[in-house]
Simulated assay, not measured.
Amino acid sequence: MSASIETKPAAAQGSARMLVAAGIWVLLLLVPLWLPALGGYTDLATRALIYAIAASGLNLVLGYTGGLSFGHAAYFGLGAYGAGLCLIYIAPSLPLAILAGTVLGGIAGILVGPMAMKRKGIYFAMITIAFGQMFYFIAVRWNALTGGEDGLTGFSRVPLHLGGHAIHMGPVRFYYLVLAMFAVVMLVLWQILRSPLGHSFVAVRENTTRLRFLGVAVDKQIWVAFAISTFITALAGALNALLTGFASPDNLGWQLSGSFVVICVLGGMRSYWGPFLGAIIFIVAQDYLSSVTQNWMSFIGLIFVLAVLFFPQGLLGFIKGRARS
Score class of each variant (00 low, 15 high):
residue 196 P to D: 04
residue 178 V to P: 03
residue 213 F to M: 13
residue 179 L to I: 01
residue 205 R to L: 07
residue 202 V to N: 00
residue 238 A to N: 01
residue 228 I to A: 14
residue 168 H to F: 11
residue 193 L to I: 10
residue 195 S to T: 05
residue 186 M to K: 13
residue 190 W to F: 14
residue 223 W to G: 07
residue 179 L to F: 08
residue 171 P to D: 15
residue 199 H to G: 04
residue 208 T to H: 09
residue 226 F to T: 06
residue 188 V to P: 03
residue 178 V to E: 01
residue 233 T to D: 02
residue 219 D to C: 05
residue 225 A to S: 15
residue 200 S to R: 13
residue 206 E to I: 05
residue 171 P to Q: 15
residue 187 L to H: 05
residue 191 Q to T: 11
residue 167 I to E: 02
residue 205 R to N: 05
residue 228 I to V: 15
residue 227 A to P: 05
residue 216 V to H: 15
residue 235 L to F: 05
residue 229 S to N: 03
residue 226 F to S: 05
residue 187 L to K: 08
residue 202 V to H: 01
residue 170 G to P: 02
residue 176 Y to F: 14
residue 185 V to Y: 02
residue 192 I to Y: 08
residue 173 R to A: 11
residue 167 I to M: 09
residue 232 I to S: 05
residue 187 L to I: 10
residue 214 L to Q: 12
residue 225 A to C: 14
residue 183 A to R: 08
residue 193 L to F: 12
residue 201 F to S: 08
residue 182 F to R: 03
residue 168 H to S: 11
residue 219 D to T: 10
residue 193 L to M: 15
residue 183 A to S: 12
residue 200 S to G: 08
residue 203 A to E: 05
residue 206 E to F: 07
residue 218 V to Q: 05
residue 234 A to D: 01
residue 219 D to Y: 08
residue 178 V to R: 03
residue 179 L to G: 01
residue 240 N to C: 09
residue 196 P to R: 07
residue 227 A to R: 04
residue 173 R to N: 09
residue 203 A to K: 11
residue 175 Y to W: 04
residue 191 Q to I: 12
residue 210 R to V: 05
residue 172 V to T: 15
residue 238 A to V: 05
residue 214 L to I: 07
residue 228 I to N: 06
residue 178 V to K: 00
residue 182 F to P: 02
residue 229 S to M: 05
residue 180 A to R: 01
residue 167 I to C: 03
residue 211 L to Y: 06
residue 208 T to C: 06
residue 209 T to E: 15
residue 175 Y to N: 04
residue 204 V to H: 11
residue 226 F to Q: 06
residue 237 G to F: 00
residue 217 A to Q: 14
residue 233 T to Y: 00
residue 189 L to Q: 12
residue 229 S to D: 04
residue 168 H to T: 12
residue 230 T to R: 13
residue 168 H to D: 07
residue 240 N to E: 13
residue 197 L to P: 03
residue 203 A to T: 02
residue 199 H to N: 10
residue 219 D to G: 13
residue 203 A to H: 10
residue 214 L to E: 09
residue 200 S to L: 11
residue 182 F to Q: 11
residue 173 R to S: 11
residue 240 N to K: 09
residue 185 V to N: 03
residue 231 F to G: 08
residue 218 V to H: 06
residue 185 V to Q: 03
residue 192 I to D: 04
residue 194 R to G: 12
residue 166 A to Q: 14
residue 194 R to P: 09
residue 238 A to R: 00
residue 235 L to V: 01
residue 237 G to Y: 00
residue 230 T to I: 13
residue 226 F to Y: 13
residue 170 G to N: 13
residue 206 E to M: 08
residue 198 G to T: 08
residue 239 L to F: 10
residue 189 L to W: 04
residue 172 V to Y: 00
residue 235 L to W: 01
residue 220 K to S: 14
residue 177 L to V: 10
residue 207 N to T: 07
residue 211 L to E: 06
residue 238 A to S: 12
residue 232 I to L: 10
residue 180 A to G: 15
residue 172 V to D: 11
residue 181 M to W: 10
residue 193 L to Y: 12
residue 221 Q to G: 10
residue 238 A to P: 02
residue 214 L to H: 12
residue 196 P to K: 07
residue 238 A to M: 02
residue 226 F to D: 08
residue 194 R to C: 02
residue 178 V to T: 09
residue 176 Y to D: 01
residue 224 V to C: 02
residue 231 F to P: 02
residue 218 V to P: 06
residue 213 F to P: 04
residue 190 W to Y: 15
residue 204 V to R: 11
